[in-house]
Design a protein around this nucleic acid. Sequence first.
DNA 1: CTGGAGTTAAAAGAAAAACTTTGTCGATAT
DNA 2: ATATCGACAAAGTTTTTCTTTTAACTCCAG
Lengths: 304, 304
Amino acid sequence: MKSPVHLNALRAFEASARHKSFSAAAAELNVTPAAVGQLVRTLEEWLGMPLFHRASSGRVRLVPTEAAERALPDIRAGFDRLALGLERLKEGSASNVLTVTVSPAFAAKWLLPRIDRFQAAWPDTDVRLDTNHKPVDFAVQRVDVGVRYGPGNWPGLEAEKLMEEEVYPVCSPGLLREHGRLRKPTDLAREILIHDLSMDGYTGFPSWMAWLKKAGVAGAATPRGMQINNSAAVLQAAIDGHGVALARSVMVRDDLAAGRLVRLFPEVECASALAYYVVYRPECGNLPRVKAFRDWLFTEVAAG
Amino acid sequence: MKSPVHLNALRAFEASARHKSFSAAAAELNVTPAAVGQLVRTLEEWLGMPLFHRASSGRVRLVPTEAAERALPDIRAGFDRLALGLERLKEGSASNVLTVTVSPAFAAKWLLPRIDRFQAAWPDTDVRLDTNHKPVDFAVQRVDVGVRYGPGNWPGLEAEKLMEEEVYPVCSPGLLREHGRLRKPTDLAREILIHDLSMDGYTGFPSWMAWLKKAGVAGAATPRGMQINNSAAVLQAAIDGHGVALARSVMVRDDLAAGRLVRLFPEVECASALAYYVVYRPECGNLPRVKAFRDWLFTEVAAG
DNA sequence: CTGGAGTTAAAAGAAAAACTTTGTCGATAT
DNA sequence: ATATCGACAAAGTTTTTCTTTTAACTCCAG
């Protein structure tokens, strides 16, 4: 845990390596080139090895040693992280921008239609959305809170279950009228099934294959299909009457309520092993803006 | 990118918060308590806010402010990362321990049976194995190189394809003799299929379901099965004659060669979308020990 | 109650850095 | 050739950091 070295020397080294020049580094650090040179030399003596190949000729005279090159990414990451910590100190809880990370589909289908109510309740808080498929690094991306889909364990993060979820087929009312013969799951064999590729990475998420099995449709000999890489687009395709989609209850709540989609075969229950969780860094759980958003999420869910 | 603060003051703050005492922090940093106190005070003045609640009574007199508490994890992470960078500087390429991360099954079934030859060729290099299911953070775990299974894109890491892979059913010779009727894939319906749960998390990895479909076995009405959570144990169960396993070519190469297992239905080809990759941090690719290991892996694969 | 051991706090002086100044040298560009 | 630019070196200066000392305070033991 001890880093007994001259931290300033390390910083001088980093800047020099970045600019490949003592002078440029000196300019950045608001000191004279000689000062930087001395710091770096001190560090080199302390380590017992050179950090730069000093070329007395050529345009670039300062080339980091191989060992230096190897250590630089870590040193940079270290300083970055420290700067982040400082920033966090300075802002304190004063900042009024709340950064939320969610998946694009969840943003479009659940959060955005409701976010007005949060902004109305907390007009002084600016919400910044960070829509991303993959879980992001909360620390480096300066994310305050996220709503994430998964099994509920994120390393180093607090997670509270927000909503459980069911999975069922949906289609447009028009499609249902035309192909009026969608009475039992086996009728799906004649329909175009819309597959959601974006959920492939989630272990435990029911695919069409799994749902059909659960519905008792044996040997679902791969009916005609359509592959779409985005959950929101999957639902849009279903709304447009292009086929039958396997929908997540959370995502289609509004579309069902508005009559844009209808649920098929409610008698088949298929719960997802995954759920939506509110996720945040433990040390940020007490931030007023985070607490406010978390509480708002839960009331919003409770309100149906 | 600038962190113009007194870095030493930050360190003093961190140590004080950790020990909840200036004196203890001072002992750690080999200075007097007064020095630590001053550093922290200057930091507080610079920030314009207190960092500790000074209790004049009670056993613990130094309690970090909420803002401080929130910033501490980042500050710690920053110093840790810096220390790591320093370590990397000091060792240089001199270290002779090579840390390799692989999955437990790959270690057992492929790497360990061959590792002797690497150690013979590089007797001065100590190999440390880090067997883990999940991809680890190469930086914080001080991992030099890994052999990982997946689609080939790891953020921030260099990846070179080492081996492609096929998937096919295998069983013990004994089982094949007794149930001599394993002539075509549909015969599998009467066998116990061993499922490898540990591969569930890998998108694109063929399951029994997918293989049967590919083999033209329609409506594989879930034959009797056995679920095992570990690839090596799956193969061991097959070797022991408990059923038919869906094996990855890389894993069973030795078992097939030794006659412990036999491949079934070689006429059905089922390539995995995934492959084995050599993975390492870009900045470490030139380390002699990493280069040596990488080259050895490729010659080992080429040798069959 | 009283004294010792443990804190933090505040001052001033001592020590150790970090930095600047000045000047030299080699290589490059004009 | 010569002006320029950047690294290097040595000496001097400034600033920061640390220690020392003193004081005030709390807790605990006698």
